[in-house]
Simulated scan of single mutants.
Amino acid sequence: MTQPITLADDPDLAHLIDLLDMLRGPEATSLWGEGDHSIEKKFAYRLRPILNGQGSAQDVDYLAVYVLKYLGKDNTHIPQEQITKWLRGVNGLPAAGHAWVEDATRTAWTLVTRYSLPHWRGYRSTPGQDWLTTP
């Protein structure tokens, strides 16, 4: 069994959690949705083990993918205007919403590549191996 990934272990993960804390929580159903298939449920399923110090690489990866899919730049689920509206303490400032989306997208992508890349690489154990074998 692998060691759990905690916020203290990964500053990018801690930063992503800080960014999510800037948004209203799951009580803001007009942001996160309601019901068993809501975006809130997807996030909560991965956030809880991470916040309890029991997060796995898969939890971090899925959380980051959810940020890209539901909150990232040009997503079709929660547009930047909604994110701007629900950011705490910025009073609907569009530049703050834009900056949040850019930062969240960049941080989530960093985490996805960190925790998914070994699986994407698959059988190729040497980074860039395809380039070494191409004539």
Rank of each mutant, 00 (worst) to 15 (best):
T2S: 15
Q3R: 09
T6Q: 05
P11Y: 01
A14I: 03
I17M: 09
I17F: 06
I17T: 11
D18E: 05
L19F: 09
D21V: 05
L23R: 02
E27T: 05
T29C: 06
T29V: 12
L31A: 05
W32I: 08
W32A: 10
H37E: 15
H37Q: 15
S38D: 00
I39A: 07
K41C: 09
K41E: 06
K42Q: 14
R46P: 02
R46V: 15
L47A: 05
L51P: 00
Q54N: 09
D59A: 01
V60M: 03
Y62L: 13
L63Y: 08
A64P: 05
A64N: 10
Y66T: 07
K69D: 12
D74M: 11
N75W: 08
T76L: 12
I78K: 11
E81F: 07
E81Q: 15
L87D: 00
R88F: 03
R88C: 02
P94Y: 06
A95Q: 14
A95E: 15
H98C: 04
A104P: 09
A104D: 05
T105R: 09
R106E: 13
T107Y: 08
A108F: 03
T110H: 06
T113W: 15
Y115V: 01
S116E: 13
P118K: 08
S125K: 14
T126E: 10
P127C: 01
G128Q: 00
L132H: 13
T133R: 13
